[in-house]
Design a protein around this nucleic acid. Structure first.
Lengths: 335, 335
DNA sequence: CTGTTAGCGCTTTCAC
DNA sequence: GTGAAAGCGCTAACAG
C-alpha cells in the first residue's frame, strides 16, 4: 500500500490476486467476471477502503456523473443558486462540483470559458454557468446559463423577469407618493441591469413623471462599487426621496451611506433593492426588495441541464416571475 | 482540432510545429525554451483558446493549487461557510472546488472519506471537511475539519463555542422568567449537540431549575427530523413555555408547528435557535438565536489549511466565540 | 534549446 | 473468465 493512505486500483488488484482490468470490471459491473472473483475483489475494496479516483476515471471514460456549477465567486447570489441546484440534483444520481476562482474572476471577462476548458471533456458531464460574461455557443459539453450578462442568446438560459420586477419596484415607490426617484443601476454591459433601468423608465413614463437624469447613476453589483454614486446621489442639492438600487447589496450600501449622512430610513429616504438575497433581511431596516426565485432558478437550471445531457428537447429559455417583498425600507415621502 | 471545441496540448503543439513537451514547458514557465519559440507557442495558445486540463495535469503533477471544500449538501450552514472560504482564499493563488454528493450523503456516515478518496492525491492540494462524521487521522493530503461530529480529535479543527452558546441561550430564556424550558436537541452522536445539551443542563442547574426529562427531546439537524419530537413537546399536558432548539432550522420548524397548534410566538411560546443562518431572519417571527460566526469560521479554516499546505506550524484547534442575537421569537412567559 | 520516453490511475478492446 | 496492452492529456526526466 502507498505511503499516505492513497489506495489505487493496483493495490486492490495485487491484494486480491487479480489483474487491474478485472478489478475495473467488478467496479463497473461489467459482465464476464466469476461470482467468486467478484465477491473476493469486493471484499478487498471494502477492506482497503478503496474509492476510484474521479480524475483518473474521467480522463479515460468521459462520463463522470458529476455536474459542474461554475461561479466567479461564492457570494450570496451564487450560493442561493447553489442551494437550488442541490435540491434539483437529489435523486438524479449526479454529484455536484462547484468551482470558483480565487476571487480574481470577478473583474475578469471570460472566466467561464477558462474554467470550462479546465474542467470539461473530463471531470464534468455538463455545466451550469452562473452569470457568465460571454456565452460562446460552442462548449463541448451541455451547458446552461443562469442570468447571463448578455441576456439569453444561443445557450439554454434560466433567468427571471427583470423588466417586470423593475416596473414593480418603481411603481411601488410611485404608489407610496414618491416623485424624485433615483436609480442606482448596474453595469451597462449587463443585460439584467439594462432591463432594470428600462423597467424604471417605463414605470416613470407610465406615471407621467419625467426622469431627472441627475438621479440615474451607474453602480456595480460588487461591494464598494456603488459607494461613490450613492454618495453623489444623496449629496445632491435636491436629493431623491427614494432610491431603486439594482441589486440588494448596493441597496444595503445605499442605506448605510444614507444613515451616515443623517437620513432616517424610511422617513427621509425610501430604498428598494432587487434579488431578495438572505442578507436583505439582516439590514437595518430590513430591505424592501424584488424577489428573484434564486433557489428555484438553480433547481430549474439543473433540470434543464440533465434533460440536455439525456438528449431531451427543451424550451431553451426559462424566465421565472419576480415579486415584491415588502419589508421596512420604504414609506411615503416626507414632502 | 477536435470535434467539439476541446483543444488539447497536442493541438497546440501541432499548430505551433513543436513537441508537446515544449508546449508544456512554456505553459509552466520552465527554463530552456527559446524566446521566439515561446512567443509563437503563446500566440497559438491564445488563438486556439487553449486551457490545460486540470484533470490531466493533476494526474501527473500532484500539485494543482485547488482546494476542496467537501460538504454533504449545499444548505444554509455549508453555504455560509463557503462564503467565508471564498473570502479567505482571495489573494492566495488557490482556486476553490466545492464538492457535494447528490443529497444522499446526509444519511451516510463516512461520506467524507469517500469524497476525499475520489478527489485527493489528484485534483486537490488540501481539503476542508464540513461537519464530517468520522475523522480518520490519515488522509494523504492536508485536511482541516469544521465542526466535526465527534469534536476535535487528531485533525486540525475549527469550531465555535457550543457549550458557552448553549448556556447563553438557556440563560436568556431563564432571565426572561421561563422555568419550563424544553430542549430539542440534535443527534446524540454529534459532539456539538452533546455540548449544547450540556450547556442547557449547566444553565438550568446554575439557576436551580430542575430539568424535567419529558422536556428533553432528540431532533435532528435536517428538515423533517424534528417534526415529531416538536409536536410531542407541544402537545404535552403541561407544555413548555420556551424551547431551545439545537439549530435554527429545527427552531423554525418548532415555530411553524407551534403556530399550527394555535400557539402565538412569543406570547404563548418562546423559541431560541442556534447558528444564525440567514434563514433565521426570514421566519415569522424572526428568530432569536445564537450566532456562530460561520463565515469567519470558513475563512479561518482556509487560512489554517493553507498554512498546513505550506508546512507552517499551527495551533490545531481554533474555537470561535458565539453570541446572542435577539430578534422576536422570545419573550416573558404568559402567566 | 528541443524532442523522445515513460507513466500518473483508470477503462477498454482483444487475445488467451 | 481473465489479463496484457494501449491510451486519455499532461509533466518530468533524459537524450540529443
Amino acid at each position: 500500500m502507498h505511503p499516505l493512505g492513497r489506495v489505487t486500483i493496483g493495490d486492490v488488484a495485487r491484494t486480491a490476486g487479480v489483474s487491474v482490468a478485472t478489478v475495473s470490471k467488478v467496479i463497473n459491473g461489467r459482465y464476464g467476471v466469476a461470482a467468486a472473483t467478484s465477491s473476493r475483489v469486493r471484499a478487498v475494496i471494502e477492506q482497503l477502503g478503496y474509492e476510484s479516483s474521479l480524475v483518473a476515471r474521467s480522463l479515460r471514460s468521459h462520463r463522470t456523473h458529476v455536474i459542474g456549477i461554475l461561479v466567479a465567486e461564492f457570494e450570496p447570489y451564487s450560493t442561493e443558486l447553489l442551494k437550488g441546484t442541490s435540491t434539483g440534483v437529489t435523486g438524479t444520481g449526479y454529484e455536484l462540483l462547484a468551482y470558483s476562482g480565487g476571487g480574481r474572476a470577478g473583474e475578469d471577462v471570460g472566466w467561464e470559458r477558462r474554467y470550462l476548458s479546465r474542467l470539461s471533456g473530463t471531470l464534468i458531464d455538463g455545466a451550469i454557468l452562473v452569470t457568465p460574461t460571454v456565452v460562446d455557443v460552442q462548449f463541448g459539453i451541455p451547458v446552461v446559463a443562469v442570468d447571463p450578462h448578455t441576456g439569453p442568446s444561443g445557450l439554454p438560459t434560466v433567468d427571471s423577469d427583470n423588466l417586470a420586477g423593475a416596473v414593480t419596484a418603481t411603481e411601488h415607490l410611485i404608489n407610496l407618493g414618491h416623485k424624485r426617484i433615483a436609480l442606482l443601476g448596474g453595469r451597462p454591459d449587463l443585460e439584467s441591469a439594462r432591463l432594470r433601468e428600462e423597467g424604471y423608465r417605463q414605470a416613470m413614463g407610465a406615471a407621467g413623471i419625467p426622469v431627472d437624469d441627475d438621479l440615474v447613476r451607474v453602480g456595480g453589483y460588487r461591494p464598494g462599487t456603488s459607494d461613490r454614486p450613492a454618495r453623489e446621489l444623496l449629496t445632491l442639492a435636491q436629493p431623491p426621496t427614494a432610491v431603486f438600487a439594482a441589486n440588494d447589496l448596493s441597496a444595503i450600501r445605499v442605506m448605510e451611506i444614507a444613515q451616515t449622512l443623517g437620513f432616517r430610513i424610511p422617513q427621509d429616504l425610501s430604498v428598494i433593492g432587487f434579488d431578495n438575497v438572505p442578507e436583505s433581511t439582516m439590514s437595518r431596516p430590513p430591505l424592501t426588495t424584488i424577489r428573484q426565485p434564486l433557489q428555484q432558478m438553480g433547481a430549474e437550471a439543473m433540470r434543464m441541464l440533465i434533460d440536455l445531457i439525456d438528449g431531451k428537447e427543451r424550451e431553451p429559455h426559462l424566465c421565472l416571475p419576480t415579486e415584491l417583498v415588502e419589508r421596512d425600507s420604504c414609506g411615503p415621502p416626507r414632502c
